[in-house]
Amino acid sequence: MSEFIVTTKNLKKYFSSRSGTVKAVDGVNLAVRQGEIFGFLGPNGAGKTTTLRMLATLMTPTSGTINIAGFDVAKQPDEVRRHIGYVGQNGGSDRPATGVENLILQGRLYGMSHAEANERARELVKLLQLNDFADRIVYTYSGGQRRRLDVAIGIMHRPDVLFLDEPTVGLDPQNRANLWDEITKLKSQGVTIFLTTHYMEEADILSDRLTIIDEGKIVDEGTPEALKKEVGGDCIAIGVENQQDVGQKLKIAIKKEGYSTKITEESELIKIYVKDGALVVGRLMKLLDQQKVKLRTITITEPSLDDVFLQKTGYSLRDKDLDEGGQS
């Protein structure tokens, strides 16, 4: 088997609607390495879920090919199904059954004997810490408990690749952090994880490599660090007294120093983009002293994935999500 466990070539999914053709996925090439956490980041409606549904044998592509674990999804869907686990946005646990019953049935549907399935279920109960509620009916679960069960069901048959569609949507921060731990734990067990998300923080923390998608097309790809480095350096934002009067002069003075790549001015802030914030901040303070400008606030931020998105698409991921609202 090659180093890539999931590959797609020129994958497309078009939907025809009354207002014309919607290019939900428009020529996507992906290559997921064995054993990594692969993040698929984009705003709602970017085509993440549609791509994932095609990978998981739930939807037929308009054109293009998908290969998973050496099998062609169009030609050998059942072979692909044996090698993948899938946790959809709505989970998939059966509400009127207990957690353990859900797990055992899932195992048996993949051909395990009852004893095998039972043993594996107990193993997962331990691994994902479901002990407190595994024998209760799923109707009684909290959102976080149900998510953990959903993930356990997804890996019941020891898949090579686990697809997670927006795994932490609707979870509170604590449950989100817990689930991140669980996902990292799964990776250490050797499962390749393909995860879609519209949370930049989530993509940043979890992904070994990530791909950014917008309007059906891939915008950028790489490790989170490399992507952020592309944007270039840090941003020092300063707020000074009497900015209206001194702002213009200050900007020219900073520019003369030669360490800034870009300077922008907002109503209350001057933003100075530099290679390395920590090295420059001392010289900047000295300059402010010389100019007799009184500093009110100063923050140094590293670039975020949102800055990457902004640079590539011209708009912020946060804004786009607010505009579209709802779920993709």
Partner: peptide, 17 residues
């Protein structure tokens, strides 16, 4: 419809059943 909405049907359709 309940089972479609809670993702149960989708989960089964990803298995080789």
């Amino acid at each position: 419809i309940d089972e479609v909405k809670t993702g149960v049907i989708e989960r089964f359709r990803v298995t080789p059943v």
